[in-house]
C-alpha cells in the first residue's frame, strides 16, 4: 500500500507529459530541427524549478514526511555518460520518446509502442550482459 502514492504521483506526471505534448514524436522532431521553442521551454523551466526546489530543501533543512534527512543521490562521471548518452540520443529521435514518454505513448492508445518498450527492456538487458566489456 505504501507504493500507492507513487502510482498517484506517476499518474500526475503522466498527465503532465501528455498535456504538454512532450510525448509527441512530432514535438521531438520539431525540437531537434530547431523549429520550436516548446520542448526547450518545458525542459528549461523544469530544471529551473527543480534547482529552486532542491535549493529550498537544502536551505530550510526540509525533511521527508516521515522525518528522514533528504538524500540527494550522486551521479558519478563515467565514459558511459558520453557513449550511452549519444546512443540514447540517436534512439530518442527515432522513437520520439525517452523512457517516461514510452509508457505515456502506450497509455495514449499507441499500443504498438509496447514493442518499443520491450525492445528498450532488451537493450537494457544486453547492456547488463556486456557491462564489464564496455568502456566506462
Amino acid at each position: 500500500m505504501k507504493n500507492l502514492k507513487y502510482l498517484l504521483i506517476g499518474m500526475l506526471f503522466g498527465i503532465i507529459l501528455v498535456k504538454s505534448e512532450v510525448i509527441s514524436w512530432f514535438r521531438i522532431q520539431e525540437m531537434f530541427r530547431l523549429e520550436s521553442f516548446h520542448m526547450y521551454g518545458v525542459i528549461g523551466s523544469a530544471v529551473i524549478t527543480g534547482i529552486l526546489g532542491v535549493l529550498l530543501i537544502r536551505k530550510l533543512g526540509i525533511r521527508t514526511i516521515s522525518g528522514e534527512a533528504i538524500v540527494l543521490p550522486k551521479k558519478p562521471f563515467t565514459k558511459g555518460n558520453i557513449f550511452g548518452g549519444l546512443i540514447f540520443g540517436l534512439g530518442w529521435a527515432i522513437t520520439g520518446a525517452c523512457p517516461g514518454p514510452l509508457f505515456a505513448q502506450i497509455g495514449s492508445g499507441f499500443t504498438v509502442v509496447i514493442v518499443t518498450l520491450l525492445s528498450a527492456v532488451a537493450g537494457t538487458w544486453v547492456y547488463g550482459l556486456l557491462k564489464e566489456k564496455l568502456p566506462h
Partner: peptide, 9 residues
C-alpha cells in the same frame, strides 16, 4: 529505436 533507448540510457 527502442533498443537504443534502453541500451543507451
Amino acid at each position: 529505436g527502442g533498443f537504443m533507448v534502453g541500451f543507451g540510457t
